[in-house]
């Protein structure tokens, strides 16, 4: 019970902090836009604000005026690799002919016009890349600590972070991976655990104020979906391929079924990619829309209502963070399971 209260208070604090940082940022952002564009001083661009928050950026802006500069890494065929701080491009500055146009780095000519001929390869450490690295480091620190727990408490009851995460690992093994894949689960289990905890930690980091929308980025979900696709189709046995190309139906039905099955092979990872991306991004959009209401109404009286809704949404997002990590892992396990299943019995 006390744990639940603690969790509620914790979430409330986070939410209010989030709300506060949004307040400040947008009050000031509004001022800033007001400076540049006097005509639209009263108008608040909510979709622009939301898009800005759910997309990637060069440098990590925690709140307005508090921006962590990150390295910009550009590669062009002509001038090779160029590395400089993202702070050199802040506020529309031009550095070495590079300009940050809506988070796309473009080459500008001396007269300020964009040079369309040059398209640099942008390998910058953006907010998302920094968040990705942070989550990777966190995961390694957490799970080497867990492993140390097993070395230290050999033959004894688990303790500390080990006892906190052991039920999760056991749940993943006994209720997700093992039933979905079957007896040959051990080969895929380490990858699936990494996948689950990677999605989970990034979902949770994304909920923190100033956090990146990493698992709500299509590039991230695409990579994981492609890995799932590769594992499933490289390990698929003859029953799996027979099911795709020679289904147990009258031959006339193959005209319809084979294309459907082939589409299904690609649809499965595609749905994984879209599901995680859409769920996490949608959560962020809802939260940002709620905070945006304050600026649309231009009335402080709506903030308690918004805070109430935002708290509620944040709790739901907390649930979604766990749920989506679980679903992605569970579905990947099931796809692998169906591809390596030993005997083929009809499962339509």
């Amino acid at each position: 019970m006390s744990k639940r209260i603690l969790l509620t208070v914790f979430t409330a604090v986070i939410t209010s902090f989030f709300a506060f940082s949004q307040h400040q940022e947008h009050a000031e952002a509004q001022k800033a836009t007001g400076h540049e564009n006097h005509e639209s001083e009263e108008k608040f661009d909510i979709s622009g604000m939301i898009m800005h928050h759910i997309s990637d950026e060069h440098g990590w802006e925690f709140a307005h005026g508090l921006k962590l500069p990150l390295p910009v890494i550009l590669y062009t065929h002509d001038s090779g690799l160029e590395i400089f701080s993202s702070s050199r491009l802040d506020h529309g500055q031009v550095y070495n002919g590079w300009k940050n146009e809506h988070e796309h780095i473009v080459k500008v000519n001396a007269d300020g016009t964009v040079n369309e001929a040059i398209h640099p390869w942008d390998f910058s450490i953006t907010k998302n890349v920094a968040s990705l690295l942070l989550s990777a480091v966190l995961l390694i620190l957490i799970f080497t600590a867990v492993k140390k727990g097993y070395d230290k408490n050999k033959g004894k009851a688990p303790s500390g972070i080990q006892s906190f995460l052991e039920p999760v690992i056991l749940y993943m093994r006994d209720d997700v991976v093992k039933p979905a894949i079957g007896k040959n689960y051990e080969k895929y289990f380490p990858y699936l655990l990494t996948l689950f905890f990677f999605i989970l930690i990034n979902n949770l980091l994304g909920l923190l104020p100033g956090g990146a929308n990493l698992t709500g980025n299509i590039a991230i979900t695409m990579t994981m979906a492609v890995i799932t696709f590769l594992i499933v189709n490289l390990n698929g046995n003859k029953y799996y391929w027979k099911h795709v190309f020679m289904p147990d139906t009258p031959k006339l039905m193959w005209i319809i079924l084979i294309p459907v099955e082939i589409v299904g092979v690609f649809m499965k990872p595609l749905s994984l990619m879209i599901r995680l991306f859409a769920n996490i991004t949608a959560g962020h959009i809802i939260m940002l829309s709620l905070f945006g209401l304050i600026f649309i109404f231009q009335n402080w009286a709506v903030s308690p209502v918004v805070a109430g809704f935002a708290l509620f949404m944040n709790l739901i997002e907390l649930l979604v963070a766990f749920l989506q990590a679980l679903i992605f892992t569970l579905l990947t396990s099931m796809y692998i399971g169906s591809a390596i299943e030993d005997h083929s019995h009809d499962h339509h």
Binding site: M51, I54, S55, D56, I73, W121, D122, F123, S124, I125, T126, N128, V129, L132, L133, A136, F198, N217, I218, A219, I220, M222, T223, M224, I227, T281
Partner: peptide
């Protein structure tokens, strides 16, 4: 914009992951 994977992020994700 949201549905276009950024090449840089894709690259880092593949490497880091």
């Amino acid at each position: 914009e949201l549905l276009k994977p950024a090449v840089g992020l894709l690259f880092w994700m593949v490497v880091v992951f």
